[in-house]
Design a protein around this nucleic acid. Structure first.
Lengths: 152, 152
DNA sequence: CTAGTTGCAAAGCGTTTGCACTACG
DNA sequence: CGTAGTGCAAACGCTTTGCAACTAG
């Protein structure tokens, strides 16, 4: 629902991508969505998933969150919200902290930008990763370089 | 100054990268830094610039901001601050809005993460781009797909 | 000496695109 | 029917890496 402005035919693969996102609890990547999609439609291609994700984002049906050099994560558009991101394992979770429109107003008063919105991510160590000792990452190979918050 | 925890020898190229960042007004990309660096040391390689940037970020001397699929932008570590990003041209600017530590405390109360910090970027149209009509991007080719904030 | 560093070229990864074909409206 | 959408494979942009030759400590 809510197709507008753009053309947008209703292809099976587009619907499939959307369905998967709607069912999904978390914030899957294109790759993850692709893997799920091909279970139900083996012929679907990764390119198609990417194309549809991009369209759906452009339309406003989805929101895309890219943290550092990790692959983008997608979710269906709900109310504006923020995310917490684990600097160890990269997992992403929604926060219930309400959108701070005050901040938009403040910033509007300090720059000449035509402000649209802001995005905010909190970084920390998730409960699961807190268990593991400081240095043992989940998969042996942790390269949290970019997204890692300044280590001091 | 402030070498610690890691090994870190003082190579000329590392110093050069750091110097360039210190002199820089804006938020240069690795490529831009590389171009400036090779003016002063023609033999320096892009890989070295990337390697040093990564190290310096890991140490905490630099902070790295990646918005969407655009190349990372770097700056020397100052006080914590936020950025405004133009959704048309991608330019990035510092904001003087003080770090909202209240938010960290709030979030700490709502999740079991070991919180470190948050990052926030404001999106809008910069003064320069406001001049240009809605659809004429600065270089003919605007593909603001990922970083573009949901268009509605 | 020897572990960190460099330049080069090649590889890697996520994402996009050109093309010929298919299918929605 | 015409145009948007698809699958495939190749290309892309940014970043990383293997390697052999250095170099700072």
């Amino acid at each position: 629902m809510a197709e507008k402005s753009v053309t947008l035919k209703a292809s099976l693969q587009r619907q499939l991508v959307l369905d998967i996102l709607k069912e999904s609890e978390g914030h899957p990547t294109a790759q993850t969505i692709f893997e799920e999609a091909r279970k139900r439609m083996p012929s679907i291609s990764l390119a198609t998933v990417y194309r549809n994700l991009r369209l759906l984002v452009k339309q406003g049906n989805l929101i895309e969150s890219k943290i550092g050099n990790k692959p983008s994560r997608f979710e269906t558009r709900k109310n504006r919200h923020y995310h917490v991101c684990c600097v160890r394992c990269g997992s992403l979770e929604d926060l219930v902290l309400p959108y701070q429109s005050v901040l938009d107003r403040k910033v509007e008063g300090m720059v000449r930008y035509q402000l649209q919105e802001h995005r905010m991510e909190f970084f920390g160590i998730c409960p699961r990763c807190q268990g593991r000792s400081r240095n043992s990452s989940q998969l042996g190979k942790q390269k949290l370089h970019q997204p890692a918050i300044p280590a001091r």
